[in-house]
Each structure stands twice: as structure tokens, then as C-alpha cells.
Design a protein around this nucleic acid. Structure first.
Lengths: 168, 168
DNA sequence: CGGTATGTTCAGTAATTAATGAACATTATG
DNA sequence: CATAATGTTCATTAATTACTGAACATACCG
């Protein structure tokens, strides 16, 4: 093993530019309701000039193995990073996906769509409850449920259109 | 004071339908990264047949005065609820805004746009740091920063278009 | 005015969420 | 097969976030 690899390089800190870019992705992760560490890892991979393995991330970001593994898993889950196989190396190396279209699409499909879908199911259950209501309560409630369903449909349709808008 | 108002009605629980609707908005709040109580309050106002005051919300949802006040404040901040003045009553009454367009617009302007804008500022700072780089590091880094800026601009433009899409 | 109704704020606490690190797979390799 | 390298899982701990409730502000009303 090369003495220049591994923990030794941990002290070889990130440049100010690196840190600023990572900070930017930490904020993005926050907006998207993802753990901070996910933002850190993506930011590091984004700014890195070469693919990095789990330990590279862990050491440079000074985070635990568990967080790193979990973070990479989440990023893989919606296609924000890609795995690169290096000849003669058992480790997995990762590269930041740079197509905004792909990332946005993966994110909406994996992290948003399930919520929208479960909302749809819930509205169906609510509509069943509506049938058990008194006739006088019914009319106004029905309007509200219709409105809910209308929102749900518009949200469903807007997701894919949004992805078109973001371009690719 | 009417004996039928106030705390007494706390026991007059919510119907199953009410609870399901509120649960739906709790989930939405979660997706939007808003406190659960905000979802509860909006859900209650949405399903209520009449405007409700702070105490109505507090009692029916069994949450504290502080949470209720804070929750209403947040909902007002992005126009998800409207204040209704009732003649001869000092209390403020609230009604759920039902225009998805208005709510989505208020939400993006108040809760999303500031993040996008601060991202823009950060990218500007990053670009300044780029000038301090060695010539050889510069070229590849510059590409990445260009990409970041490109994303930022597309996100900025997509926000208003999205609102158009969601319809009004 | 003084008292009351209403709403806000915020320090303290509770609940939730993320991070840690050691134990546990898994796979390659001599 | 034994060993080492790599990665995952998950119980515990740490950090964050939301909630509570009492103190405070404000405005009304007799």
C-alpha cells in the first residue's frame, strides 16, 4: 500500500473552494430534506477531479463509515452518483452525475412520487368515508374532497412536466 | 359566554373523515419540510365548515397555544390561510385558502426562493475563489462552476414556470 | 384607569432525526 | 481454508427540531 494513500491524506484538507462547493450542496440537501452528510458527499464527488471510494469520502469529510455508506446508498438510490469500476481494485469508486435532468428525475421518482401516490390512496379512503355522512354534511364536504382530488391530479401531472421544463 | 363554546367542546372530537383529511395534510407538511402542527392546523381549517380562531384550533387539535400561534403565523406567511374578521368579536378567525396556485406561489416565494437566491450568491463567491487557483486546476474547476451556475439559472427559471403549470 | 381577552415570544423540554462505530456479512486472495 | 479488504447494518449516542406553557405585550371594555 502506498504510504501517500489512506488516513495520512486526511490532514490534506479541502481547499476553500472545495469547502464552499460542499457547503452549497449541504444547503441544497437541506432544502430537499436530505441528511447533511448526503449533501457533503455529493458536493465532494462533484468537485473532485477523479472518482472517489467510500474511504476517500469518509476521510476527507471526516465522517463515519456508517454515514458514508448510508449517504452513498441514498445518492445511488436516485441516480445522483454513478459507480465506476477501476481495474484491479475491489473498491467501488463513485462519480457525481452531472445531468440535472437525470438527478431531478431520479429524485422525484424515488423521493416525491411515493408520497403523491400514497396521497392518492388516502383520498380514495376519504371518499369512502364521505358515503357514511349525513346528507346535509355531505354536500359541502364533497366539494372539499373534490378539490383535494383536483389538487392531487394537478400535482401528479405537474411532476413530469416540471422535469421537461428543467431541460435535459 | 356560551357554555357550548370553549374547552367543553374539546371532547367533541374530530370525525374519522376529519382525522383522515388532517393526516393527509400532515404528510404534505412533512414532504414540504414544515412542522407537523402546521399540517394539522391547515387540515383542520380546510375541512372546517366555518372560520376558526386560535383557540378552536388549539382545543380541537389538542396542541399548545404556542404551537398554534406559530403554526398560524407560518401559514399566514405564505398565504395558505386568510384572516376573517367577525363583527363583534376581538378574535381573529381563519379560513383555509383553497387556490392551489396562490398557496404554491406563496410557498415558493417565501420558503424556496430565498434558498435559491442565497445559492446564487454563494456561486458568485465560489467564482471569485476560482481566480485564485493555479492555471492547471483552473480549467476543470471552471467547467464545474459553469455547470453549477447553469443549474442555478435553470432552477430559477423553472420555479415561475412550475407555478404556471400548476394552473390557477 | 383596572381587569379581561387575545395573541406572541421564548427558555426549557420532549420528540425526532442523523451520526457513530463496532459487529457482522461478503468477497477476494494467497 | 485463513486472512485481509471492503462494505452494510443497527443499537446507541449526539444533534437538531418541534412543542410546551408561562411570562409578557397589546388592545379592548366597563
Amino acid at each position: 500500500m502506498n504510504i501517500m494513500n489512506g488516513e495520512f491524506l486526511a490532514s490534506t484538507g479541502l481547499s476553500e473552494l472545495d469547502r464552499e462547493v460542499i457547503e452549497l450542496f449541504i444547503r441544497m440537501a437541506d432544502v430537499l430534506n436530505l441528511p447533511r452528510s448526503v449533501g457533503e458527499i455529493y458536493g465532494l464527488l462533484f468537485i473532485a477531479s477523479d472518482p472517489l471510494c467510500l474511504d476517500d469520502c469518509r476521510i476527507r469529510l471526516k465522517i463515519s463509515k456508517g454515514s458514508t455508506s448510508q449517504g452513498l446508498k441514498i445518492l445511488r438510490s436516485f441516480g445522483a452518483i454513478r459507480t465506476v469500476y477501476m481495474a484491479g481494485d475491489r473498491k467501488d469508486y463513485y462519480l457525481a452525475e452531472t445531468s440535472l435532468r437525470k438527478i431531478a428525475s431520479g429524485f422525484t421518482n424515488e423521493q416525491i412520487r411515493p408520497h403523491v401516490d400514497s396521497g392518492k390512496e388516502r383520498i380514495e379512503r376519504i371518499r369512502e368515508l364521505l358515503d357514511e355522512q349525513d346528507d346535509d354534511a355531505r354536500a359541502t364536504l364533497e366539494e372539499k374532497i373534490d378539490l383535494l382530488e383536483n389538487w392531487q391530479k394537478r400535482a401528479s401531472k405537474t411532476l413530469p412536466l416540471m422535469l421537461k421544463l428543467i431541460g435535459g
